[in-house]
Computed example of a mutant assay.
Amino acid sequence: MRKVYTNAVLWACFFIGCSISSVYAQVNEGMISEREIEEHLMVLTSPKMKGRYPGTLGNRKVVRYLESEFECYGLKTFDDTYRQVFKAEMRGKKAAGRKVKTWNVVGYVEGNHSERKNEYIVLGAHYDHLGQGGPSSKAPGTKAIHPGADDNASGTSALLEIAEKLASNRYLLGRSVIVVAFGAEEHGLLGSKHFVDNLPVPKDKVKLMINMDMVGRLNESRQIYMGGAGTFPGGMKLMKKDALEMGLNPIIHAGEVGGSDHVSFYKAGISAIGLHTGGHDQYHRPEDTLNLINIAGEKSIAEYIYNVIVKVAQEDYELYFINQD
């Protein structure tokens, strides 16, 4: 029987430096596990986070958790910090025009090729959510924590697991991989827009962006949806082949880049693909909770994306932008 840790134990480990998942990973190096995914989800959807709304204490707690995990994995920093600060303008009648301080959390795994290590794949997911509701809530008038287990604690937990495995297997990488947890996505892709406008590396060295937004509800047909696979060479073939090998049912579009953080990259002329497992009735409602996440399915998706990154990070995989407009 799998051991599940309580939120109290997870928070105790967090405040001494690393979550249990990171300590456990030191023994099980290089693995993506259901256990660790669930532990990340427990922290991210905890009532202590209060829906991860930008500018709040809950949002700051998430940032501290993410940078603690990045440090435990051994991710490198740009400018000696994992935090990229920016001001986010809030939406909604009460908050309209109000700007709050929030962050992207950024680290990277350095590649090994003498030249290609200066080229980058970006892996991203947004960590923020709706707090206790607001104009984007599908339960208007309800003042209740929106835990956002699928949107987007699922993508953030997958981001952490993939980052951990990449860091443990960095010897496989020719190119480097930037890992970004974006803030303020729900207020207009603000974190990813800020990141693209303030890249820590030359723009022409960013070769591909892969984004995960709502990857926690893999259905019985194992359908994984993705848009933007045609924005880089061989993308359609690669994404389909690897998905089928993982037992996934890929629904792939060359264009249809979509409405999440990868759009910020595509608009800047950077190849970008976004992945999700589909919509559901709990979207942007208080009912988007951890118990509805298909953790085994999310593990499969994380392994799939990890495999894709290792392939496109090879020095002999040609990467350039292909416009789909």
Score class of each variant (00 low, 15 high):
Thr231Gly: 07
Lys76Phe: 11
Ile224His: 09
Phe70Gln: 04
Lys93Pro: 00
Glu318Arg: 13
Tyr24Met: 02
Phe232Gly: 00
Gly259Ile: 12
Tyr53Arg: 14
Pro233Phe: 15
Ala268Met: 02
Asn152Arg: 10
Asp325Gly: 12
Ile32Asp: 08
Pro54Lys: 12
Pro200Val: 10
Pro286Ala: 08
Lys311Thr: 11
Ala268Leu: 06
Glu220Gly: 15
Ala96Cys: 01
Tyr5Gly: 00
Tyr127Met: 03
Gly124Asp: 02
Glu71Ala: 14
Thr142Asp: 14
Ser192Trp: 06
Tyr73Phe: 15
Cys13Leu: 09
Val310Pro: 04
Gly297Met: 04
Ala254Tyr: 00
Met239Tyr: 03
Ala144Met: 07
Ala144Phe: 00
Arg60Thr: 08
Ser264Arg: 05
Val180Asn: 12
Phe321Trp: 11
Val215His: 07
Ser192Glu: 04
Gly274Thr: 10
Trp11Tyr: 13
Pro135Asn: 06
Gly278Met: 02
Arg285Thr: 14
Phe70Cys: 05
Tyr24Thr: 01
Gln84Phe: 11
Ser114Lys: 12
Glu185Phe: 08
Cys72Val: 04
Ser192Ile: 07
Gln132Asn: 12
Phe182Val: 05
Arg83Asn: 06
Pro147Ile: 12
Glu115Met: 13
Pro250Tyr: 09
Ile162Leu: 11
Ile37Asn: 01
Trp11Ile: 13
His280Leu: 07
Phe15Gln: 11
Leu238Arg: 01
Tyr283Ser: 01
Tyr5Ile: 02
Asp79Cys: 13
Pro135Gln: 12
Thr142Leu: 15
Asp288Phe: 10
Asn307Val: 00
Asn211Phe: 03
Leu244Gln: 06
Asp213Phe: 10
Arg64Tyr: 11
Ile273Met: 10
Met212Ala: 05
Ile32Pro: 09
His194Trp: 13
Glu298Val: 10
Ile162Thr: 05
Trp103Asp: 12
Met42Tyr: 07
Tyr65Trp: 11
Leu248Arg: 04
Phe70Gly: 05
Gly148Met: 08
Asn104Glu: 03
Asp316Gly: 09
Ala96Ile: 00
His126Asn: 12
Thr156Gln: 10
Leu218Asn: 02
Ala153Lys: 03
Gly235Leu: 09
Tyr306Trp: 03
Ile251Trp: 08
Pro47Thr: 09
Asn59Ser: 13
Asn211Glu: 01
Leu208Asp: 06
Leu57His: 06
Leu292Gly: 02
Val109Lys: 05
Gly247Val: 08
Ile273Ser: 01
Asp325Phe: 12
Arg285Asp: 00
Glu185Ile: 09
Lys138Thr: 06
Thr102Trp: 14
Ala96Met: 10
Asp242Val: 15
Val206Trp: 09
Phe232Leu: 02
Leu189Trp: 04
Met90Trp: 01
Thr156Phe: 10
Lys237Thr: 14
Ala296Met: 02
Ala88Thr: 01
Asn59Glu: 11
Ile16Asp: 06
Lys138Glu: 03
Gly141Asp: 02
Ala268Lys: 07
Arg83Val: 07
Asp288Trp: 07
Asp79Trp: 14
Phe14Met: 10
Thr277Glu: 07
Leu292His: 14
Glu29Val: 15
Lys48Gly: 00
Asn291Met: 11
Lys143Ile: 15
Tyr283Trp: 03
Glu287His: 01
Ile16Val: 15
Gln132Val: 15
Met226Gln: 01
Met214Arg: 01
Ser46Asn: 13
Ile252Lys: 01
Ser68Arg: 14
Phe182Cys: 05
